[in-house]
Design a protein around this nucleic acid. Structure first.
Lengths: 200, 200, 200, 200
DNA sequence: TCATAAACGAGACGGTACGTCGGGTCTTTGC
DNA sequence: GCAAAGACCCGACGTACCGTCTCGTTTATGA
């Protein structure tokens, strides 16, 4: 994305652009945000944006990445279910927050732009999924999880319902949902025992 | 969406517009499809599109709804897990299909257009979720499910991972994923039985 | 312009169209008047206009022709200069009148539509020019005019300055202008006698 | 018409626009010339036209003004009638020329657009009328004209018949017409001398 | 007297051009 | 000597009217 000389780059302009982009995206969504507006609000020439980023989505992506809590550390108190709950409640609160909108816009943009999709996965999603998988692996070793589970699949099972509500807006994402997800996931749907109809 | 006289409407034009919109959307995605192109390909004036629809997304939504299998019936062989599997495999195959792209585009568009979001939920998502919930309820009555589960939450748990992969493209949606989801959901993550590890 | 059956034609619609066209033309000029507006104001379908006229200009032309004083009679009191003055003052007053605008619009339209130009000349201009030429011819026979003048050229000389001001709007058309034109035309510009330098 | 920065303006685009507009206007008249065509032929964005001009007529007006012989000098050989004839024949030839069409279109446009009318008078008509009036004034001082004539009215009397034929197309504008106009104007219509028929 | 066929009102239709917005590139200029 | 300012070419937007084309609904003969 960047042939020009990185060293001569104006940090002041860069920050102004990121801030303006994020603000506008929060105000009216990424789709209705224009590069022209970002430039004007940042007090910057359009060229300065095109020089360093490939699209407005890339700007928002960088802004978001820079501002979001970069800590992907997962709590580890020894109680897996409690730790999952702690972490997922944080995520749920974030999802429910109004100024999470730019992240949603970014996911939307990613549907028609593979480049955005790739960098979104790489920067935002996979590191966090990895951290969770890691914690699950440790839990499995401690016997808190069945030995045969595929932790990556479990990460999906746990977080997917949050994304489902976030993106389809069927219902709001809440802490209760988190509790529900964890309980159901751990205890299963089968009426008795994990091996199904046995004790019937 | 329609103040003009519905009765004088040209069905020929309507069909041509829906077909053109869907084709273009499959070819290059909704974002890169223009109303002008839809009109040209359909051999129609732009005004005819604007007269009957509020946006290109609305056109695609109607096209999709009209062409998609409207059967929301859920199989019921008496074996809940098998029926879920049957139905979810159908969904998974659809999600994996190349010409499912318009649906994905539509979900993306819905992120920044509440009207699209609402009609998407009402027309595409909720009827199918209801059908699944219904089947789950019957299964619960037959003792195939724990008596205390919230079927609506279960629907989310089951389908959310498919949407997760569809929209975040971390991995492809497959029949194996479906098997995994069902198994894990029914048997739970806990090492033995649903009531924790404590010896029974 | 008219293959349809003239006898079945609705006089009510015809009158409503002519009136609406003339009104709109007075209100905002022919250029900003649309067939759609004429139809709506006349309570008429667009097709009824297209059935009987070739253009909006043709409508205005017919309206104007029907409403204008069709008397092309020239006064003849025996005093040519007085009669010219009488008639030209009428014309000057018409030109100065606000609701003469449609006639001006029509002349403008004629500049880019030979059909309008032809019918304008035939219906509006030539009959009146002929009447004036006739009166001049009688005056010439009576010795009120030099025997060698070309009456058609004289008609032009007399009326052209009124059109000049009407169309170029350098100054308003007035009765004083009429007096001036007649005096100068009759007496000539040369300082003494009609044959110029003679008495020098 | 111009809020944008005149100094950054592209002269290349400006010239291309003026040329294209004039060409199209000659080919099919101003009424059938579209801004879109001008832009396309000039290899220019439409916005560049709208940025600097208020209408297609304004473009043609500027083009015409820039290309037309800006010399408004009137010949002065000492013989007023000869000088008038010289100059008016030039005008008559111009009026008769095929590529004078844009000027006619402009006069037509002026009938429904006061702004065009004003600039047309200011730029094209009045300077030339002034030059003629000036020459007439000098002639009057030299005794070639009656001392009491209003030179401005005379300008109108002389040129109006050319405009009459130009705009009403009753007959072609020719050099003969010019001769006729001058002879009649100077010698008058009255059978003998300017002070009536009474024998001197 | 009534059927029938034309003209009618309404207005949807395929188009063309409008005037505007914003994208991404290129040029000028001021700090 | 960079970068703000912004003019440029371009393509699409959503709208206004064009002139044509159905639709029922009057209306006005002529069988």
């Amino acid at each position: 994305m960047s042939t020009p000389n990185e060293q001569r780059r104006s940090e002041r302009s860069r920050q102004a652009i990121l801030a303006a982009a994020l603000d506008l995206c929060r105000e009216r969504g990424l789709a209705k945000t224009t590069v022209e507006e970002i430039a004007k609000r940042a007090g910057v020439g359009k060229q300065t944006i095109y020089r360093w980023w490939g699209s407005k989505a890339a700007v928002v992506q960088e802004a978001l990445n820079e501002r979001v809590n970069t800590t992907t550390d997962f709590p580890d108190t020894g109680d897996l279910r409690a730790d999952l709950r702690t972490q997922m409640v944080v995520v749920a609160k974030a999802f429910a927050s109004a100024d999470f909108a730019p992240y949603v816009s970014l996911i939307a943009a990613a549907q028609e732009d593979p480049e955005i999709a790739a960098s979104l996965r790489k920067v935002m999603i996979e590191p966090r999924a990895q951290a969770c998988a890691e914690r699950l692996r440790r839990g499995r070793e401690q016997g808190e999880l069945r030995a045969d589970v595929d932790v990556d699949a479990v990460v999906e099972m746990l977080y997917a319902p949050l994304y489902y509500r976030l993106l389809l807006r069927t219902r709001p994402v809440t802490s209760e949902q988190v509790a529900d997800i964890i309980d159901t996931a751990f205890e299963g749907l089968a009426p008795s025992g994990r091996d199904g109809t046995v004790g019937r």
